[in-house]
Amino acid sequence: MKEAKEVLYGLYDDETVLLDAVRQANADHLDIEEVYSPFPVHGLDPLLGLSESRLHIAGFVYGALGTLTAFLFMTWVFTRDWPIIFGGKPYFSAPAFIPITFELTVLFASIGMVVSFYTVCGLGPGVTNPTLDDRITDDKFCIAFETNGYSNEEISKLQSFFSKTGASEVSSKVI
C-alpha cells in the first residue's frame, strides 16, 4: 500500500500558457511533481529536465531479436527440418526470407516496446490509475505539486503561483 499523496494542482487551458507556467516554476525554484497533458507538448521535456527515454534502445534490441528469429528459423526450417523446393529455387533462398524477416523485425520491435512501455509506466489491463481530473485526458493541461508536509505558507505560495501564471482552476486531492 502506497502512502497517500496530497496533491495541489492547477489546470491550464492552453499549452503555451502551460509552458510559460513551467518556466515560471523553474524560475521560482518550485518542485513540480508531475505535468499532465492530453498530448505530447513540444519543448516540455527539456523544461522539466527529463532525461532522454531509453525505450528506443530496447526497441533496437527487440528489432534485432526479431531479425535473428525470423531469418534463423526460416533457414532451419527450409534447410534442415522440412526442405521443400519452391519454384525451382534453392533450399536456402535468402531473398525470399527478406520480407518475412522485415515483418518480424517490425513486429518484435513494436510489441516489445509497447509491453516495455506499459510495464515501466505501470499501465495495462487490470491496473487502475487515479487521475487528478478526467479532463486532463481531453483538453486540459495540469501542473501538480506534492504537498505532503507543506506549511500553510508554502501552500499559499503555490496558490499564488497558479493565479499568477493563469491557471483556470486550482484544487487539491489526496491520491
Partner: peptide, 11 residues
C-alpha cells in the same frame, strides 16, 4: 531489393 525480388520470384 524489390527490383530484384519481383523478377526473381516471378521466375
Amino acid at each position: 531489393f524489390s527490383q530484384f525480388m519481383l523478377i526473381w520470384y516471378a521466375n
